[in-house]
């Protein structure tokens, strides 16, 4: 009886992993998105722009480098879903949410960094993305997908003469 089931192992194991990835991965993703929404609301008072110059910089007292980064891994379900999508082409929604989560998390960490300096304005924000696990032909395990997002910018502290966040 046992041997009977063992012959299905090569088929069952990936199915179990996909199921596990789907269940736990979806749950974790939902928790992360909920946490992002809450923290973004709390960070709404910080102005984030990608302008290269600081408007009205006469009363600026400090400009400092701030950054935030995060590495997020895909779950097994998403990886398989994306591989299947590769056969027919089209939008890979599973990875879109992965990238979105990574970008929002990196941005929030950068905002936290700025807040520690007492700044409520960040200029010249840039994103740097690196695919750190997949896309490497030398790797044995091609099923691993993880992405790094690094957000950086210049945090500005204004003089007391002007309220933070108002463009003159």
């Amino acid at each position: 009886m046992r041997e009977f089931w063992f012959q299905f192992l090569p088929i069952l194991l990936p199915l179990v992993l996909i199921g596990l990835g789907w269940a736990v991965g979806t749950w974790r993703e939902r928790a992360h998105l909920a946490s992002l929404a809450v923290r973004e609301q709390a960070a709404a008072d910080v102005r984030v722009t990608n302008l290269r110059c600081v408007p009205g910089d006469r009363d600026v007292v400090e400009g400092r480098f701030v950054c935030g980064d995060v590495v997020i891994a895909s779950d097994y379900f998403k990886t398989v879903a994306a591989a299947l999508r590769n056969l027919v082409g089209g939008e890979v929604r599973a990875f879109e949410t992965l990238m979105e989560r990574a970008r929002r998390e990196a941005l929030l960490r950068m905002i936290d960094d700025a807040r520690r300096l007492g700044s409520r304005e960040i200029y010249n924000v840039r994103f740097e993305t690196a695919n750190i696990l997949s896309g490497n032909p030398n790797r044995r395990n091609k099923a691993s997908v993880a992405v790094e997002v690094f957000a950086f910018g210049t945090a500005v502290v204004r003089g007391e003469s002007r309220e933070a966040g108002t463009i003159p």
Partner: peptide, 23 residues
């Protein structure tokens, strides 16, 4: 650890720390 995380998804804290420190 990263291999395990790839099953269920989520942040790879070890890598985040490594890259922050390297940068």
């Amino acid at each position: 650890a990263a291999g395990l995380k790839n099953l269920v998804g989520g942040e790879l804290r070890g890598y985040t720390e490594l890259l922050t420190e390297a940068r």
